[in-house]
Computed example of a mutant assay.
Amino acid sequence: MPQKIGEGFVLGLSPRYKCYHLGKQAAGTVVEVVLSCVNNVRLMDHANFLLYSEGKTFQFIGGRTEKSPARLAIPRTANWHIVVDRVGFQALSDSNVRTIPPKGAKPAAPLLAPGTGNAAPAAAAGSQAARPTSEADVLTRMLNELNTYKQIANTDSLTGLANRRAFDARMTQIFSDPKNLAGTALILTDIDHFKSFNDRFGHLVGDRILKSVAEAIRGSLPKAAFSARTGGEEFGIIVQVTSPDDAFDIAELARRAVESTSFTHQPGATEGSKITISLGLCMAGQSLSLEDLYIKADLALYGSKNDGRNRTSVYQDDMQDNSTPA
């Protein structure tokens, strides 16, 4: 009797991949994968699945296929896994997996999904879980997947903050309604002397600095503030305030939070380096356009750099562009 297999996810892998934990399967079992579009289908034993989960070199059976259903034969009795690469986020590709054991063999419960706790047992054929899903269930799953992909597309993978794409979208949204301008402030910031840290300690340490700064900034801001990593060691903050003084106070909260964070270069080290940031602030009401607002906040940031760093500067009309801070 065919056995339908439930899907799961593996910690550390992109949600783009669906993982099916087949459990112990007898040699000669056929694994059937139903696809909605072209996909990469990988069948691997448990040892190779662990290598795959850790990003190491692994061996598998299968590959890119346009056939649906795709069928793969299990060559020997062991614990097995199927990983399906849902190619094309826009297609919201879907997949279903079932095993067809050879005559006389009993299908086993699925293996535990690494890092996810106890996996639910596979549904027996004919049970409610094995019946075709309704249109409402399919729509709900598609919407959930779409929201997941949107979150991935708008998140900086290193720091967990919003990325430049999301930052630009939020800025555009603000300027679409003139009522937003008077109470909106843009704060731009970057890490002081970041290049010297990268050159001295390497990019791995640089990445740790970026994560630490991002966490300090995020933890210091009001809940309604929007923070993003806009590129390299640069960050952007958008806040709704009642006055420029309130915006300045919020910027200073972020600056002091980073300044008070002790950063160690090696795990277990007791002494760390001082990391600081410089910030530039401009009220949206002072700008003629979205580009103008960004330019003016950037001028204020360079003002902080030229005045000694580790400070917040507010845009003034007499500020001149100086792209080579001291």
Rank of each mutant, 00 (worst) to 15 (best):
A224P: 01
N154E: 13
Q316E: 09
F58E: 00
G272C: 05
V213R: 08
Y20K: 02
G183N: 15
R309E: 05
D307I: 03
A162I: 01
A91G: 00
T324E: 13
T99G: 04
L143D: 12
A169N: 11
V314E: 06
L139W: 08
V97E: 00
V241Y: 01
Y52T: 01
D321M: 12
M171H: 04
G303C: 02
T116Y: 13
S68K: 07
M319F: 13
G104Y: 07
L161V: 04
M283C: 06
A130G: 10
S176H: 13
R86A: 13
R131K: 15
L210T: 04
D192S: 02
T312A: 03
Y149K: 11
L253M: 15
P101R: 00
N322Y: 12
S14Y: 09
S134P: 08
A182G: 10
S278E: 01
L279H: 06
T312V: 10
K56A: 12
A123E: 06
T116S: 15
L111I: 06
K179C: 10
A125G: 11
K296L: 05
A166L: 07
D192R: 10
M283F: 02
S262Y: 12
V239S: 03
H203F: 08
G63D: 13
A169F: 07
I74M: 00
V10R: 08
R309A: 03
V38P: 00
A70I: 01
P325H: 03
Q25W: 00
I250Q: 01
R86V: 10
K18T: 14
N118H: 12
L11K: 12
D94V: 07
L290T: 08
Q240V: 12
M319E: 04
I174V: 15
N198V: 10
F89Y: 10
A153T: 06
N39S: 14
K223F: 14
T264N: 12
L146V: 12
N39H: 14
F58C: 04
A269D: 15
R131N: 04
A300F: 05
I191Y: 00
G232F: 08
H81W: 14
T242E: 14
L51I: 04
S157L: 11
L288K: 14
V241T: 12
E234H: 02
F197C: 05
H203C: 11
S313Y: 11
P15S: 05
K223D: 13
L72I: 07
T155K: 07
T29P: 00
A214N: 05
P222Q: 05
A47N: 13
T99F: 00
H193C: 02
T172W: 08
Y20V: 01
N39I: 11
V33W: 05
A122P: 05
T159Q: 02
L112E: 11
F167P: 03
M283S: 01
V97A: 04
